[in-house]
Simulated assay, not measured.
Amino acid sequence: MTAAQLHGFPLPWFYDEIKTIHVTRPAKSAQIRRKSVIGHSNALVSNDIMLIEDIPVTSPERTFLDLSALLSLDDLVAVADFLICEHDRAFEPPKPPVVSAEKLRAYVLNRHHVRGLVKARAALDLMRVGVDSRPESRLRLILQRAGLPEFTTNYAIPGDPEVWPDLACEEFKASGQYEGEIHQTPQKQLYDRNRDERTAERGWLQVKVYKADMRRGEAYVVQMFKHALRAQGWPG
Rank of each mutant, 00 (worst) to 15 (best):
V57F: 10
V57Q: 07
V57C: 10
T58F: 11
S59Y: 02
S59T: 15
P60K: 12
P60I: 08
E61P: 01
E61C: 08
R62H: 10
T63R: 07
T63W: 03
F64M: 05
F64H: 00
L65F: 02
L65P: 03
L65S: 06
L67Q: 09
L67S: 06
A69W: 07
A69L: 05
L70Y: 14
L71V: 07
L71K: 05
S72D: 12
L73G: 01
L73T: 12
L73N: 05
D74A: 08
D74E: 14
D75R: 13
D75W: 09
D75H: 15
D75A: 14
L76M: 11
L76R: 03
V77E: 11
V77A: 04
A78M: 04
V79G: 02
V79T: 02
A80K: 03
A80F: 01
A80W: 03
D81Y: 09
D81G: 12
F82V: 06
F82P: 02
F82M: 03
L83R: 04
L83Q: 12
I84P: 01
I84N: 02
C85G: 02
C85V: 04
E86D: 13
E86P: 00
H87D: 06
D88F: 04
D88Q: 03
A90D: 10
A90M: 01
A90G: 06
E92N: 08
E92L: 10
E92G: 01
E92T: 00
P93E: 11
K95D: 10
K95E: 13
P96K: 15
P97H: 12
P97M: 12
P97L: 09
V98D: 04
V98P: 00
V99D: 08
V99S: 02
S100G: 13
S100D: 01
E102D: 11
E102M: 11
E102S: 15
E102Y: 08
E102T: 14
K103S: 14
R105H: 07
R105Q: 12
R105W: 07
R105F: 07
Y107K: 01
V108D: 05
V108Q: 12
L109E: 15
L109H: 14
L109P: 00
N110I: 05
N110L: 10
R111P: 06
R111Y: 08
R111I: 04
H112C: 05
